[in-house]
Design a protein around this nucleic acid. Structure first.
Lengths: 258, 258
DNA sequence: GCCTCCTTGTGAGCACTGCTCTTGTTAATG
DNA sequence: CATTAACAAGAGCAGTGCTCACAAGGAGGC
C-alpha cells in the first residue's frame, strides 16, 4: 500500500513537472498516472463546489464517464481519495506560504511574517472547503496517515524559518517572562528548537507555537462563521492580529504596511 | 417553525428544571417534549460514539423502536437535529465555563482566566465530537441558524467578563502599542466594548478577541491532531499559552498555579 | 355521547451512497 | 503465440435521507 502510493506520487510529479522519462514508463503506467490525476482533479472540483461530505465516488466516476467500481482500482476507498486531496491541500498551502515568504528579502522579518500569514488567510478564503478538509474537524473515523505529516509540516517550516532568521539576525526580542517553563513543555520547546529553530530560546519557541495556533484559530473562526456578529471587518482584525502576535513572539516591530 | 422550536425549548427546559406546570400542558405536549428529548439524547449518544457524519436518523429511530419516518414529526431534517445538538453543545460549554468562573472570587482575575480556559479545554477533550460539531468545519451546506448565536455567545460572554472586571478593577495593563487601529477594526472594537466590555480600551478589546481565537485555535489543534509530533505535552503547552496570552491581553500576572 | 379535526405512527418507496464480486477484455511479458 | 496481470463494467448488497399515502387515536366543539 505504502509502495503503491509512493509510485503514484512519483509518477504524478513526473507528469506534472517534466513530462519526460517516457521510455521507462509503459503506456499503462502513463494512462494510470493520467487517470489518477483526472480523478483527483474531478474530486477536488466537487470538493470545492460542495464540501468534503458531498464528495461522492459515484459522482466522480459518472463525471469521468466510467463505472464507479473502476475507481477502486485507483483509490482503495473514499478515505483514500480524501487523503490524496488532503496531501494536495497541504502542499498547496505550503507552496503559497513559501512563495509569499520569497517575495521579501531575507532580512525583512516583519514583512515576511505578514506576507506568510496573509498568504495562509488568502489561500483559506480562496479554498474554503480544502482548508476545512485539512484544518476543520477530521471526517469521522478518519485518522491521518503518516504520509500527510510531511506536506503538513511545510507551512510550519516557513513560519519557523522566519522566527529562526529573526533570532539569527539578533532582532528577536528576549521575551523571557521570569518564570520557567514546565518540564515537559521545556523538552518540547528544546526539541522543536533543535528541529526547526536552532538558536531560538525556549520561551520564544513556545510563543512561536502559540502564534501558530492563533493564526489558524483566527482563520478558522473567520471561515467557519464564528466571527459573524462580533467582528465585521475580519481582514482588519486579521492584520492587527498578525502585527500584535508578531511582536508577542518577539519579531521586530512593524514599520507600517508595505 | 420558529414558534415550534420556541415551544420545544420552553417545554424542554421546563421538563428538565422543574418538571412542574402540568396543568397547562396536555398529555400530548408532555409526550412530545419527552420524545423530543429522547431523540436528542439518543442522537447525542451516537454523535459521541462515532461523530457527526456517522449520525443516522434511521439508526436513532431504530434504537428508539420507532419508524424512521416518525422522526420527521419532531425534526424536519437531519440538519435540524444537528442544530439541536449544536445548541445543546454550545449551552453545555457555556455552562462549564460559567461554573469554572464561579469557582473563583470575582477579584481573582488570573485565576478566573485560567479556570475558564481550562474548562473549555476539558470540555472539548471530554466531548470531542460535540466540540468538532461546533468548532470544526461546518457540515457541508449547513448554515448556522440564528437560534444558535445566543447559546454560542455564552462562552464569549464569560471570557469578556473577565477582561471587563480586570479593567473595572484597574488591573488591566494599558497595552497600547503606539499605532492606531485601522478604522473598521476600531469600530468593531468600540461596538464589542459597548456590548460586552464597557470601559475596556480598544487595543485591549482586540487583544481579547485575539486571545479568544487563540484559545479555540490551540484546543482545536490539540483535538484535531495538529500538535502530534510537535507538542508532546499539550496540557503544559496549553497552560503556558493561557498564561502568556493572558499577560498579552493585559490581565494581571500569574502568581503561580493554584 | 358523538363527531369531526389534527396530530401521531407506519410501511412502502425513491434516489442516492460506499463498496464487493463476478465476468469479460485488453495490454504487457515470457 | 500464449500466459498473466491489470483493467473496466455491471449487478448487487446494505445502508442513507426523505416523501407520501394511509391507519389509529386523543382533543375539542356540538
Amino acid at each position: 500500500m505504502s509502495r503503491a502510493l509512493h509510485s503514484f506520487v512519483a509518477s504524478d510529479l513526473a507528469t506534472c513537472q517534466t513530462g519526460a522519462v517516457p521510455a521507462v514508463r509503459s503506456a499503462r503506467e502513463r494512462a494510470r498516472a493520467e487517470l489518477t490525476r483526472d480523478i483527483t482533479d474531478e474530486a477536488r472540483r466537487q470538493l470545492e463546489a460542495a464540501g468534503a461530505s458531498a464528495l461522492s465516488l459515484r459522482a466522480v466516476a459518472r463525471e469521468l464517464g466510467m463505472a464507479s467500481s473502476a475507481l477502486y482500482r485507483y483509490f482503495a476507498s473514499r478515505d483514500d481519495l480524501l487523503t490524496a486531496l488532503i496531501v494536495d491541500a497541504y502542499d498547496a498551502l505550503g507552496e503559497v506560504a513559501e512563495a509569499a515568504d520569497a517575495t521579501r528579502v531575507r532580512g525583512d522579518i516583519a514583512g515576511r511574517w505578514r506576507a506568510v500569514c496573509a498568504a495562509v488567510r488568502s489561500w483559506a478564503l480562496a479554498h474554503p472547503h480544502e482548508y476545512a478538509l485539512v484544518y476543520g474537524s477530521p471526517v469521522p473515523g478518519y485518522r491521518a496517515p503518516e504520509r500527510t505529516i510531511i506536506p503538513a509540516s511545510r507551512i510550519t517550516v516557513v513560519l519557523a524559518a522566519v522566527v529562526r532568521d529573526a533570532a539569527a539576525a539578533g532582532v528577536l526580542a528576549a521575551g523571557d517572562v521570569g518564570w520557567a517553563l514546565e518540564e515537559p513543555l521545556a523538552a518540547d520547546a528544546a526539541r522543536v528548537a533543535d528541529t526547526a529553530m536552532p538558536g531560538v530560546p525556549p520561551h520564544a519557541v513556545v510563543r512561536g507555537l502559540i502564534a501558530w495556533t492563533q493564526l489558524f484559530g483566527i482563520v478558522s473562526f473567520e471561515l467557519f462563521g464564528h466571527l459573524t456578529g462580533v467582528v465585521e471587518a475580519p481582514e482588519a482584525f486579521f492584520n492587527a492580529s498578525v502585527a500584535m502576535v508578531g511582536t508577542f513572539v518577539g519579531l521586530p516591530g512593524d514599520p507600517g504596511p508595505a
